[in-house]
Amino acid sequence: MFFRFNNDLSRTIVDNVEYVVYATHMSNFGSFIRERREHLQTRDRARFSLRRIAQTIDIEPSYLSKIERGQQPPPGEETIVALATQLEVDPDVLLALAGKVSRDLQLIIRTRPVLFAEVIRQLRDMPDHAVLRVVREVRDGNW
């Protein structure tokens, strides 16, 4: 990995909150990525074309087209994460839409399965703002 900038030099990182909200209303992986890609095409037509995105994440354009149309199941985790980067979406959102959980999360759960299963069940019905309270802050001390 030899990079300074990502492919997008303007580094337009969108507010993921918007897409988490958006994603929860979309049940289909293919239609979500298609709509997202077409939305980004209004900003840069060439960069977010189906062909260019497919080339960037190293898959055939025809395969991506079939995924978008729901004729192929979602690809593997690595491809989904690469696709999420290109589409400026949180990878966990795309993985969830594909019915997958990232490997790092699986590893975390496997280390303490009973505890984390219980935590997730307990948090299931909590409102977002309450769940966000569980996010851990970096503590500042006395310098």
Partner: peptide, 24 residues
């Protein structure tokens, strides 16, 4: 002091990358 930690070998180098949030 609080905060975080990271590992570096003696005489290893680093650089910082700043990535601000984007407002649509």
């Amino acid at each position: 002091h609080g905060g975080i930690m990271l590992p570096m070998y003696q005489s290893e180098a680093l650089w910082l990358r700043f990535n601000p949030g984007h407002v649509q």
